[in-house]
Amino acid sequence: MTTNTKERVALVTGGSAGLGRALCTELARQGWRVVTDGRSEEKFTEADLPDGVTALVGDLTDAEHRATLLAEVDGLGRLDLLVHNASTLGPLPMRPLAEVEVADLAHVWRTNVGGPLVLTAALLPRLRASDGVLLSISSDAAVQHYEGWGLYGASKAGLDHVTLTYAAETGVRAYAVDPGDMRTAMHQDASPGEDISDRPLPETVVPHLLALLDARPESGRYRAEDFR
């Protein structure tokens, strides 16, 4: 499998806002070539991502869009880091499990688990050839039980399981990472009317993620704040 660039290459899903945008920006600043995606062209315009980041508009659950991402990575000839960051809370306002419909479950799991599962499968040859890392952004809701967060939390638990099973089955280094609370649009959507200005900005989480990548511990579930 040929390598077309000496620069490290990352694919970060959901890079138009929040933690995804912050991570893409810092990776590019450090000399990485970054491919990212998101559903809104308008958000990418607002994001003003730096040179070195290629942004592709599309939905991760769409097979044609995944093929476009794969082609972009193949054109670069390597993949050192795959980050599953894109996700959905599901129907808003968030609701108890007793009020969840099958269609809600299908949508959240298709986005938060299914998309990452099949995208990882497609990119495994590149990831393994570069001795790369699979990193999935998880949540404390994957292991704790909060009212209204059951659907989202179950999907993140599923993402954790998929991520670490890939590590067990293929030997690829894989991490499911809880980034902690952040001041993002998604968190505000989950907490309508609540003042979340005391939460740290996503940019403050990025150094912890990069410290994790530098440390390269054994595959597992980690908290970002434990790496400095």
Rank of each mutant, 00 (worst) to 15 (best):
L79N: 07
F44C: 05
L124E: 08
A215L: 14
D198C: 09
S87W: 07
V12H: 00
E203M: 04
V118D: 11
P50Q: 01
D62C: 04
D104F: 13
L210I: 03
H187Y: 11
G193K: 06
T111G: 07
E99F: 10
S191C: 13
T13L: 01
D140Q: 14
R128A: 14
S191F: 14
R110T: 10
A211P: 04
A103L: 07
Q188S: 14
M186Y: 08
E169F: 05
Q188L: 13
S138Q: 08
D178A: 09
G20Y: 01
W109C: 11
A168K: 15
A67V: 08
A86P: 04
R128Q: 15
R199V: 04
R33T: 15
G115H: 04
A154Y: 07
A10M: 00
A154F: 10
T204W: 01
R29W: 02
E169H: 12
A129R: 04
G158N: 09
G115F: 05
L82C: 06
L81G: 05
A154C: 10
V162G: 09
K156G: 07
E26V: 09
V83C: 12
D59E: 14
E72P: 08
L81E: 02
A71P: 05
W32D: 03
F227H: 02
V108G: 08
R223T: 06
D104T: 06
D51S: 15
G115T: 01
S40Y: 02
A63H: 08
D80I: 00
L70I: 11
G38D: 10
R78D: 03
W149V: 04
G14E: 05
R39F: 11
L19G: 06
R110P: 02
L213P: 06
G75L: 02
G18M: 00
T165E: 14
P200M: 10
G90I: 08
V162I: 15
H208P: 06
D140M: 13
L164E: 03
V53Q: 00
A71H: 13
T54W: 00
L209Q: 03
A67D: 15
D51K: 13
L123G: 04
A168H: 06
C24S: 13
G180F: 07
E46Y: 06
G31N: 04
T163L: 03
D74Y: 01
V143N: 13
R66Q: 15
G114A: 10
A211E: 14
W149P: 09
A174C: 10
A103I: 09
L79C: 08
P50K: 02
G77P: 03
D214A: 15
Y146H: 15
E26H: 04
L23W: 01
L82W: 04
V9H: 00
R128S: 10
S139Q: 10
V143P: 04
L19H: 07
D59L: 05
Q144N: 15
A185P: 07
L19R: 06
P93M: 09
D62K: 12
R33G: 08
G171R: 07
D226V: 08
G114I: 11
S40W: 01
V108Q: 12
A122R: 07
L201K: 14
E194N: 12
I196G: 13
S87D: 11
D181L: 14
G158Y: 03
Y152P: 08
A211L: 11
Y222L: 03
E64M: 12
V133E: 09
Q30F: 03
Q30P: 10
L212R: 01
V206S: 00
